[in-house]
Amino acid sequence: MTYNVAILGASGYTGAELVRIIATHSSLNIVGLSGNSKAGQSMAQVFPHLRHLDLPVLTTIEDMTFDGVDLVFCALPHATSQRVISELPAHVKIVDLSADFRLRDPEAYEAWYGQPHAATELQESAVYGLTEFYRDEIAKARLVAGTGCNAATGQYILRPLIAAGVIGLDDIILDLKAAVSGAGRSLKENLLHAELSEGYSAYAVGGTHRHLGEFDQEFSAIAGRPVQIQFTPHLMPANRGILATAYVSGDAATIHQTLTAAYDAEPFIDVLPKGEYPSVKQVRASNFCHIGVVADRIESRAIVIGVLDNLTKGSSGQAIQNANLMLGLPETEGLMMAPVYP
Results as ranks from 00 to 15, higher is better:
113 Y>A: 04
21 I>H: 03
40 G>Q: 06
47 F>S: 07
54 D>P: 00
119 A>S: 15
303 I>K: 15
279 S>T: 14
230 Q>I: 11
85 I>V: 15
309 D>M: 07
71 L>E: 01
35 G>M: 00
194 A>R: 12
187 L>H: 13
127 V>D: 02
321 Q>Y: 11
239 N>V: 11
17 E>D: 13
105 D>E: 11
252 A>L: 05
173 I>S: 10
82 Q>I: 04
235 L>H: 04
103 L>R: 06
326 M>F: 05
25 H>R: 07
87 E>W: 05
239 N>Q: 14
81 S>F: 03
4 N>K: 12
252 A>P: 05
163 A>R: 15
190 N>G: 08
327 L>K: 06
46 V>H: 00
159 R>F: 06
198 E>T: 10
54 D>I: 01
329 L>K: 02
223 A>P: 09
148 G>L: 08
196 L>I: 12
32 G>N: 08
78 H>E: 11
208 T>P: 03
330 P>Y: 08
194 A>G: 14
69 V>N: 01
336 M>P: 02
109 Y>S: 06
85 I>M: 06
27 S>A: 14
5 V>G: 00
250 G>Y: 09
107 E>K: 14
123 Q>D: 03
124 E>H: 13
18 L>P: 01
36 N>P: 03
295 A>R: 10
178 A>H: 01
51 R>Y: 03
288 F>N: 10
225 R>F: 07
